[in-house]
C-alpha cells in the first residue's frame, strides 16, 4: 500500500493548481485501428537487436583464438574460390560437417539456414547455364554454400569484440578498429533508443493514428539527433580519459603449443588444396 505523505510543503500548492478534469474518470471507447503496422515495426527492430545481443555473448573457443579463426576463414574463402576441383570442395565440406557436429542444434540451424539460402539463390541464377555446361555448373552454388557457411560459423562462434581485437593483431590501424567498435555500440544503443521510442508511441497510441508514417518519421528523426548527442558526449568521455588521437589495442603474444596446432591445420589445408589442384 503506497501512502502519499503530505509532509512536502510544495504538495499543497501543486494540488490547488491541478486541473479539475484530472479528478474525473474519462469514459473513453477507443475506435478500431490497425495496430499491426506499429507492432510489426517494433517486432522487426527487436529481432534484429536480439541477434546482435546474442552475438555479443557468443561462446568463445578457448583453444582457437579469434585471430586464427579470421585467418583460417580468409584462407578458406580464398582456396574455395580458386579451386576447380570437386574433390577439394568435398574435403572442405566434410571438415565443415565434422565441425557442425560439435555444435548445438540451434547453432547448426543458424549456420545452415543462410548458407542454404545463398546456395539456392546462386543455383537459381546460374540454372540457365546448366543447358550448356553440364559438368561443373553446380560448383558455384557449392562454393557459395561453403563460404557463407564459413563466415556465419565465424560470426556465431566469435564475439564481435574479439573479432575487432584480432584485426589489431593482423596490423589493421587502431583508429579503424575503434570506429568499427563504436559503430557496433551505436547500432545497439540507437536500436535501443528507437525501440524505446516506438514502445512509447505504442503505449500512447490509444486512438486512431492517422499519421503513422509521420510518427515513425519523428522517431527516426529523434534517433538521429540522439546519435549526434551520443557521438559528441562519447568524444567528451574519450577526451576526459586522456584520448588525443591514438588508440591502443592490447595484443598479447606468447608462444604456445596451440600455435603449432594452428600452423599444422593451415599446412594441411594448403597441401590438400595444392594437391587436389595438381600443383604438388
Amino acid at each position: 500500500m503506497i501512502q502519499i505523505k503530505p509532509s512536502d510543503d510544495h504538495s499543497g500548492k501543486l494540488l490547488t493548481n491541478m486541473p479539475a478534469w484530472l479528478g474525473d474518470n474519462d469514459d473513453y471507447q477507443p475506435v478500431n485501428d490497425n495496430e499491426n503496422f506499429l507492432s510489426k515495426t517494433i517486432l522487426s527492430v527487436i529481432t534484429k537487436l536480439t541477434a546482435l545481443r546474442e552475438n555479443s555473448t557468443a561462446h568463445t573457443d578457448v583453444f582457437f583464438t579469434a585471430s586464427f579463426k579470421i585467418f583460417l576463414t580468409i584462407l578458406l574463402i580464398l582456396f574455395i574460390s580458386l579451386s576447380h576441383q570437386l574433390l577439394f570442395l568435398s574435403i572442405v565440406l566434410s571438415g565443415f560437417l565434422i565441425y557442425l557436429c560439435s555444435l548445438t542444434g540451434c547453432t547448426i540451424l543458424r549456420i545452415l539456414k543462410p548458407a542454404a539460402f545463398a546456395a539456392l539463390f546462386s543455383l537459381l541464377i546460374i540454372l540457365p547455364a546448366a543447358l550448356f555446361e553440364r559438368s561443373s555448373f553446380f560448383l558455384l552454388p557449392f562454393k557459395v554454400f561453403l563460404t557463407t557457411g564459413a563466415v556465419t560459423a565465424l560470426a556465431l562462434s566469435t564475439p564481435f569484440y574479439s573479432i575487432t581485437k584480432a584485426l589489431g593483431g593482423l596490423h589493421i590501424p587502431g583508429l579503424f578498429i575503434m570506429i568499427l567498435d563504436l559503430t557496433v555500440k551505436y547500432i545497439v544503443l540507437l536500436g535501443h533508443t528507437a525501440q524505446e521510442l516506438l514502445t512509447a508511441l505504442h503505449l500512447r497510441s490509444v486512438g486512431k493514428n492517422h499519421q503513422k508514417y509521420q510518427s515513425l518519421g519523428n522517431i527516426l528523426g529523434m534517433t538521429f539527433i540522439k546519435s549526434q548527442e551520443y557521438a559528441l558526449a562519447t568524444h567528451d568521455a574519450m577526451l576526459c580519459r586522456c584520448f588525443t588521437g591514438e588508440y591502443h589495442i592490447s595484443q598479447q603474444h606468447h608462444m604456445e603449443i596451440r600455435y603449432i596446432v594452428y600452423v599444422m591445420i593451415i599446412i594441411i589445408l594448403s597441401s590438400i588444396y595444392f594437391f587436389t589442384e595438381g600443383y604438388l
Partner: peptide, 15 residues
C-alpha cells in the same frame, strides 16, 4: 581530473 557523467550510456565506448 576524473569525471563521472550523469548518463553512463555516453561515457562507455569500449567493447
Amino acid at each position: 581530473i576524473g569525471y563521472v557523467f550523469q548518463n553512463p550510456d555516453t561515457q562507455l565506448f569500449n567493447p
